[in-house]
Amino acid sequence: MDLPLVVGVDGSEPAMRAVDWATDEAAPRGLPLRLVYASLWERYEGAALAEGLDRSAEQIMADTVVEAAARRARRRDAGVKVTTEVVPDDAVGALLREGLNATALVLGSRGRSGIAGMLLGSVSLTVAARAHCPVIVLRGSHDNRAGAGRHRRVVLGVGDPSHGSAAARFAFQEAAERGVALEAVRAWRWSAHEPAGHPVEPGEPARRHEQGAVELLDKALSGAAAECPAVDVRRRTVEGTARTVLLDASTEAGLLVVGVRRHDSHGHTGMQLGRVAHAALHHAACPVAVVPERV
């Protein structure tokens, strides 16, 4: 049985855009859609008990939120199987458990309790840092055209090949499912001591740095490329910081994929994102998929 796409919903517009996006992704793949509301979100916001009612104000709000999200998904595509769940837990704990049996978790950039001007909500950031499955955070798409990005290329930020290939495989599969090109990007620098944006000097040392990036790129893609030979792969090495290079690439992308290392210790996974993934989640111009790499 195919695992569902799980969407965290809380009644906010970013969460509803996540429902739109996930519905568009689930439909062509035949995946079920699971909409999850963590009931303690309302408690944290100070919802009072409704006097004289069988259900609390919190319970009423929870049912209203999941029902509205389910209606929105069904209106967008009636063929997608939609289930809902109200989980009596905090948002992070509920979503991390849901991620154990999910194709991916899909989250809005911030929820109803987000403060105007915040770059990314704490729930989305924490779940992306700790989940055992890919987490897709809906950066961009603020004009309610969540599905528009399906026809734009997938961008993969290529890190150290020794840290795993899960992100590369995920990116290839996404490109294949969407029928779009995959742009694999590896940033390189002339010197770790040069300030960001400092132009490299021409010559043999610079060529060696660039050639090293080309070799790392080829190594990182070899396994996933063999599994998805039909995908149009465009390899690109760019001088600059990985953060700047990937954020620039995200402006014309439908999805930006980054891998993050997970160090499991005694059955617990700590918060590990790294500077590049952190920057992408805060600043990318398109949805960002954070894919765990086990090391």
Rank of each mutant, 00 (worst) to 15 (best):
residue 227 E to L: 09
residue 259 G to K: 01
residue 99 G to M: 06
residue 68 A to I: 00
residue 91 A to V: 06
residue 126 T to D: 12
residue 288 V to M: 07
residue 169 R to D: 13
residue 190 W to S: 15
residue 190 W to C: 08
residue 47 A to R: 14
residue 155 V to F: 12
residue 62 A to Q: 03
residue 196 A to F: 07
residue 219 K to A: 08
residue 144 N to I: 05
residue 248 D to W: 00
residue 197 G to V: 03
residue 158 V to K: 12
residue 58 E to Q: 08
residue 81 K to H: 08
residue 161 P to T: 05
residue 13 E to S: 06
residue 197 G to R: 04
residue 116 A to G: 10
residue 119 L to A: 07
residue 130 R to T: 06
residue 162 S to R: 15
residue 73 A to V: 03
residue 290 V to L: 04
residue 63 D to L: 12
residue 227 E to D: 11
residue 58 E to M: 05
residue 133 C to Q: 12
residue 147 G to E: 01
residue 123 V to P: 05
residue 115 I to V: 13
residue 25 E to V: 11
residue 5 L to R: 07
residue 198 H to L: 08
residue 262 R to K: 03
residue 255 L to T: 14
residue 106 V to R: 07
residue 231 V to T: 01
residue 80 V to A: 05
residue 137 V to C: 15
residue 268 H to K: 06
residue 98 E to A: 13
residue 14 P to R: 05
residue 116 A to L: 12
residue 65 V to M: 02
residue 116 A to P: 13
residue 56 S to P: 04
residue 64 T to V: 02
residue 282 H to P: 02
residue 76 R to F: 08
residue 107 L to V: 06
residue 262 R to C: 03
residue 6 V to C: 01
residue 273 L to D: 10
residue 203 G to P: 12
residue 28 P to M: 00
residue 282 H to E: 11
residue 249 A to Q: 14
residue 224 A to K: 07
residue 186 R to S: 11
residue 2 D to T: 15
residue 287 P to C: 03
residue 115 I to C: 05
residue 188 W to F: 12
residue 152 R to A: 07
residue 23 T to N: 03
residue 197 G to F: 00
residue 129 A to Q: 02
residue 128 A to I: 02
residue 257 V to Q: 06
residue 30 G to C: 01
residue 183 E to I: 00
residue 190 W to L: 08
residue 280 A to V: 14
residue 66 V to W: 03
residue 279 A to D: 06
residue 86 V to Q: 00
residue 161 P to K: 10
residue 25 E to H: 05
residue 235 R to W: 02
residue 290 V to F: 01
residue 97 R to E: 13
residue 48 A to Y: 05
residue 90 D to Y: 01
residue 264 D to P: 00
residue 26 A to N: 11
residue 219 K to I: 00
residue 43 R to I: 15
residue 262 R to A: 07
residue 178 R to M: 01
residue 230 A to Q: 13
residue 278 H to E: 12
residue 140 G to Q: 03
residue 265 S to C: 09
residue 59 Q to H: 03
residue 108 G to T: 09
residue 245 V to R: 05
residue 94 A to F: 10
residue 96 L to A: 04
residue 281 L to R: 09
residue 125 L to T: 04
residue 273 L to E: 07
residue 201 E to N: 14
residue 288 V to I: 14
residue 115 I to M: 14
residue 21 W to I: 10
residue 169 R to S: 12
residue 184 A to V: 00
residue 82 V to C: 06
residue 216 L to K: 09
residue 202 P to E: 09
residue 179 G to D: 04
residue 103 T to A: 05
residue 223 G to A: 14
residue 14 P to G: 11
residue 247 L to T: 09
residue 259 G to T: 02
residue 5 L to P: 11
residue 122 S to T: 04
residue 249 A to G: 14
residue 234 R to Q: 10
residue 154 V to S: 01
residue 185 V to P: 09
residue 254 G to Y: 15
residue 267 G to Y: 08
residue 295 V to T: 14
residue 221 L to W: 09
residue 54 D to I: 08
residue 93 G to A: 11
residue 184 A to C: 05
residue 67 E to V: 01
residue 131 A to F: 07
residue 148 A to K: 15
residue 8 G to V: 06
residue 150 R to H: 13
residue 176 A to F: 13
residue 20 D to N: 01
residue 229 P to E: 03
